[in-house]
Design a protein around this nucleic acid. Structure first.
Length: 851
RNA sequence: GGGCGCAUGGCUCAGUUGGUUAGAGCGCUGCCUUCACACGGCAGAGGUCACAGGUUCGAGUCCUGUUGCGCCCA
């Protein structure tokens, strides 16, 4: 049973196969809700690259899953793939040489272009989505292979992908419910827009970037009065879109001017001077130009002060035609305005800025020279040019009125570590508007809607046509609303399909519902929802965690889970977040192969929840050493147990053995408490510390006795204690080191360790008291002194000790007396003398013959 | 600007109700081939716990402030 030279090599493949064949991690869907532990696994973006951070994060959740399973829970541990979104679109475009054109119809027998030529081939959305699915299926295989190698104890029968028909159906069902209950609405409104990717972007997807710009001071002539007003702007090209000047209501410099009008330079458009508390008196000249739209402050002013709308930036980021002199574009010099605008129209924002600065300088409206500044500008997190604000028709989810409720839910959720709740709260409190869930993209879940087209050809957006729920999922660019025929698409009296897809978070926010097959499998869903645990990394609190809480609240009126545990980042040795662009990424598979999975998991599991951790191959070497030690000490202990029946636990009677188990019992208690608090790292640390001392001290102390005549009580006690300790230690280590513990378990047990019961104090032999380990501690101290003496004398540890003299308190000497023979054997001590007194150990080396 | 976190030997980190002499691993140095383990074992050196105050019989731990680093939000 016990191999002669145990090895870690090949354990991953061997046990991975066994676990799959035996269905060790299969979810028991007959379990009642109290017995279920459900995990809302993060679905990785399959088009992104696998990196070391994945190993780190997913190991954390897996240790918790394994602990819960050993506690007797039916663990619902699914794996999902997030394949929606831009990353996939880009890969598909490049890989197949295509681009999506939603106006095209599905090709009856579509095949992708044989070669990816220079000019992308336009394809319909259904065909494009087909290609996305084909490519992501490949990506999913790579992820699954890595996860299996990592030993994740997921139930692979519970796989889902966010673009699968099932996920699309649930996502669309969720949207139809939002619509029916009034939580979703359609609005034409200023929208953050990426001009390159041609899509709207939500607040959660935006980030600030510091960019170089310049303040330009512009002079506005007053109307009906002498003098000018001067404003500073970083975006002079928006001057044609200026609709007002705004200053703080208490600003003495401008108080008298509120209600008056000025002319915009170059365009001579009359605009009012208005007051608003968001104007910052100490910024620039204290008075600002309001344009439609330069930034989110402009949107606020425009909305709250009910200003005019003069939009000049098109969706392509270029200045579009502006009919100065016509209604809405009144000018007191229409010809001059048109001439000036003619210089700008068709240019990008950056080009137009350069040109208008020249025009302003020539006209004398530019005061002084532009002053360089560095300022924060909003970008789409995946984008390359600053976001523009354009007016467009988008679907929104009403989150603003929900904020107090969301804050309350945040307080109900248990956060690990607790301080992560602040990220959530500052996000909810800082929400600037409702959640825009429309994306003008192609690969995603389509809105399940069509709109009627009137006999006059006008689309009626007020009365969307919805499919019956049993038709879901639908693609409105391919499917036809009830009561209509395909021939009526786009015709007067017919219909049009909603062309947009949903934000990826609109689907990812439903991972508990998708994994639990909400609406499709009620018996399953009621067993797993609300779930127990959401493991994730902290940078997506504002997106994934937030949106999941929103959806669970709106659909079910509950939190989606009870606990959320956060992983930190993996930092490179320079304390920077590891990233592909920095070229410091190690691929997970290479890592797992070079160090072994258990070793890599050991490193991951020593990273505490929420704490960033340095990528440290040294720690993996330590993990490998630990795994080797597990093999070897098990080989020793099981060697002592072979050849005769293993004594029952109650054979443990020797004080030293009871003390060792007393220390172990404390470790069991601490480790259990740590796992209950999702602190896998603390559990590991406690277990590991005990394990090394068990190997180095206890095993050395009982080694000789364990060899003696098995019929005597002393040797039987040692062997029984070794059996109990090994069994408990293996089970304590199993969540972190699933492969080596399973290998050793198989040497002497039927069945898998991963379904064995988690160790408890109750299973300890009679006479064991948690934490009562003084006998072992005293014996270990004296043994240490003996070893020190031998090391200082540069002797082998096998060198005999002629006489060992121990002075100590009577109490400690009494403890030592009960381990006297073990100590003499372990230290090769010929004569052991004890006497009361100050604590001291004297070691005289040399055998009797020398003396 | 608001908030959160971190600061302990060369490195990575423990230190959970304040309590003997601040721990571990890596690295470094030395010793030992020992019959579970050289993919090893044993031992040693190395820290005024970022700084300044305060509370206390007692502070790495609690409070206030300062500095530095990181992150979140605006």
């Amino acid at each position: 049973m016990v191999p002669d030279s145990p090895s870690l090599d090949g354990l991953e493949a061997k046990w991975g196969r066994h676990w799959e064949t035996d269905g060790v991690y299969r979810f028991d869907r007959t379990a009642t809700r109290e017995r279920v532990f459900a995990i809302d696994t993060p679905p990785p973006t399959v088009s992104g690259s696998l990196h070391v951070g994945h190993v780190f994060h997913y190991t954390h959740a897996d240790t918790v899953a394994r602990y819960r399973r050993m506690r007797g829970y039916a663990v619902f541990y699914p794996m999902g793939w997030d394949d929606n979104g831009l990353a996939t679109e880009r890969r598909v475009q490049n890989y197949f040489g295509v681009r999506c054109d939603p106006s095209l119809r599905r090709h009856p027998d579509f095949t992708p272009p044989a070669t990816s030529g220079r000019d992308p081939v336009p394809v319909s959305r259904p065909d494009f989505v087909g290609l996305c699915q084909r490519l992501t299926a490949e990506d999913e295989k790579a992820f699954e292979a890595t996860w299996r190698r990592l030993g994740l104890s997921v139930d692979w029968a519970l796989q889902y992908s966010t673009i699968s028909p099932e996920a699309r159906r649930i996502s669309q069902r969720g949207f139809l419910h939002l619509l029916a209950q009034g939580h979703a609405y359609l609005a034409e409104a200023p929208t953050q827009w990426d001009v390159d990717l041609q899509t709207a972007v939500s607040q959660a997807e935006m980030e600030d970037r510091e960019v170089r710009g310049a303040y330009h001071r512009l002079r506005f002539p007053r109307m009906g009065a002498e003098g000018t007003l001067e404003i500073d702007t970083t975006r002079p090209e928006l001057l044609p879109a200026c609709v007002a000047l705004v200053a703080h209501p208490d600003d003495e410099r401008y108080k008298a001017l509120f209600g008056s009008k000025v002319h915009t330079p170059l365009f001579a458009v009359p605009v009012p001077v208005v007051a608003h508390h968001l104007a910052e008196p100490d910024k620039g000249t204290g008075i600002a130009m309001v344009c439609t739209f330069g930034d989110s402050a402009d949107v606020t002013w425009w909305r709250e002060l009910q200003l005019a709308t003069r939009t000049i930036v098109g969706r392509d980021g270029r200045l579009r035609p502006a009919p100065f002199g016509e209604p809405g574009w009144e000018s007191d010099d229409p010809e001059g305005a048109r001439a000036a605008y003619g210089e700008l129209q068709g240019r990008t924002s950056a080009q137009a800025r350069r040109r208008i600065v020249e025009l302003l300088a020539e006209s004398g409206a530019l005061v002084g020279q532009p002053r360089a500044v560095t300022h924060a500008v909003k970008f789409y997190e995946r984008g390359e040019r600053p976001l523009e604000i354009v007016s467009s028709r988008q679907w929104y989810v009403r989150t603003m009125p929900l904020r107090p409720r969301l804050l309350e839910r945040g307080r109900q959720l248990r956060w690990h570590p607790e301080f992560m709740v602040h990220r959530y709260e500052s996000w909810v409190e800082g929400l600037a508007g409702d959640w825009n869930i429309s994306r003008q993209r192609f690969f995603g879940v389509p809105f399940p809607l069509w709109y009627p087209v009137g006999d006059d050809g006008e689309v009626d957006y007020e009365h969307p046509l919805r499919p019956a729920e049993d038709r879901l999922p639908v693609d409105p660019s391919d499917d036809v609303p009830g009561g209509y025929a395909e021939a009526q698409r786009g015709r007067p009296g017919g219909f049009v399909g909603e062309p947009d897809v949903m934000d990826t978070w609109a689907t990812s926010s439903l991972t508990p519902q998708i994994a639990g097959r909400w609406g499709d499998d009620p018996e399953l869903f009621e067993r797993v929802f609300p779930m127990d645990l959401r493991p994730q990394s902290h940078e997506i609190i504002r997106t994934w965690l937030f949106s999941t809480v929103v959806r669970a609240e709106l659909e079910h009126g509950t939190l989606p889970w009870n606990d959320a545990v956060f992983s930190g980042w993996v930092l490179d040795p320079d304390r920077k977040k590891m990233s592909k662009s920095k070229g410091n990424v190690v691929t997970p598979m290479a890592l797992l192969e070079s160090h072994g999975t258990d070793a890599a998991r050991y490193w991951a599991a020593s990273g505490r929840p929420g704490v960033d951790t340095a990528f440290d191959e040294g720690q993996m070497k330590v993990g490998r050493r630990l795994a080797m030690k597990v093999l070897n000490v098990s080989r020793f202990a099981l060697g002592r147990l072979s050849g005769a029946p293993v004594p029952a636990p109650d054979a443990v009677t020797a004080p030293l053995d009871l003390a060792m188990l007393g220390g172990l019992t404390r470790v069991v208690e601490q480790s259990t408490a740590a796992y209950e608090a999702y602190d896998y790292a603390r559990a590991l640390e406690r277990t590991e510390a005990f394990f090394w001392s068990f190997c180095d001290d206890y095993v050395e102390l009982v080694k000789a006795r364990s060899y003696e005549d098995r019929t005597l009580p002393g040797p039987a006690s040692a062997r029984a204690a070794l059996a109990v300790a090994l069994s408990v230690l293996l089970r304590l280590l199993a969540p972190v080191l699933p492969f080596v513990t399973e290998e050793v378990w198989s040497w002497w047990h039927e069945g898998t360790i991963h379904l064995a019961a988690w160790p408890t104090a109750e299973e300890m032999p009679e006479g064991v008291v948690a934490g009562q380990a003084a006998v072992l501690e005293v014996a270990t101290e004296v043994l240490g002194a003996v070893r020190r003496a031998k090391t200082e004398a540069k002797c082998s540890m096998r060198a005999p000790v002629k006489r060992l003299t121990v002075s100590d308190s009577p109490e400690r000497l009494a403890l030592l007396a009960s381990a006297r023979e073990d100590l003499k054997e372990a230290g090769i001590v010929i004569e052991l003398v004890t006497r009361p007194g100050e604590r001291a150990v004297e070691v005289v080396l040399g055998d009797q013959a020398d003396g």
